[in-house]
Simulated scan of single mutants.
Amino acid sequence: MTDNGSCCRSRRFRQVLDAHTIRHIRTRPNTPKTNGKAERLIQTLNRDWAIGATYASSAARNSDLQRWLGRFDL
């Protein structure tokens, strides 16, 4: 889920999503309720996964991402 920023509407972004068969959901403009969901997901992942947890390597951190994403209804 992203907002409607130009980086999230680019051709390259679409190609990456398509390559990984990821469905892109956009928030409605001027809707803080749904924008807040996306922001909260990013905040939680940064705090608990990217920065808050200790991993032996970047590869180990990346392999643990799926477990973290499983906590959210994505």
Rank of each mutant, 00 (worst) to 15 (best):
T2V: 01
T2F: 13
N4L: 11
G5P: 03
G5F: 00
S6N: 05
S6M: 09
S6H: 08
C7I: 14
C8F: 07
R12T: 08
F13S: 06
F13A: 05
Q15M: 13
V16S: 02
D18Q: 13
A19D: 15
H20K: 13
I22P: 07
R23Y: 02
R26L: 14
T27K: 06
P29N: 09
P29V: 13
K33T: 14
K33G: 00
K33E: 11
K33D: 14
T34F: 10
T34H: 15
N35D: 12
N35T: 08
G36K: 03
R40D: 10
Q43H: 13
Q43P: 02
L45C: 02
R47G: 01
A50Q: 09
A50L: 09
I51R: 13
A53K: 10
A53G: 03
T54C: 10
Y55L: 05
Y55S: 07
Y55P: 06
A56C: 14
S57I: 05
S57F: 10
S58H: 08
A60P: 00
A60L: 10
S63N: 13
L65H: 04
R67F: 05
R67M: 07
W68K: 01
W68G: 02
L69P: 00
L69I: 05
L69E: 03
R71M: 06
R71T: 13
F72P: 02
D73K: 13
D73L: 13
D73E: 15
L74K: 07
